[in-house]
Amino acid sequence: MTPPPPPHLERIRLTGTPTGRSVRLAEFGEEIDPLQREQLLAYGLSGAQSITVLQQRPMTVVLCEHMELALERDVAQHIWVEAE
């Protein structure tokens, strides 16, 4: 028997995520420079990683595992996340 398809989850921009909410990383938009995409991967933003949004202004700050990462809006708005 084939397993049922996973439920469809809405993807939203990281910049649209309310402060304090934990979300799962879905995808990096094509707009992010390849070098910065590598940087994000190196910081551990990969797979379906769970991240918590700590603040949105003046920059988006997320908690990824136990590392705080500050992302400028130009990058954060092209990171797509989905609800946990």
Binding site: Q36, E68, A70, L71, E72
Partner: peptide, 10 residues
């Protein structure tokens, strides 16, 4: 200009 991505040490 390159947008900022930076780790914030504890």
């Amino acid at each position: 200009r390159v947008p900022l991505i930076t780790e914030l040490p504890p």
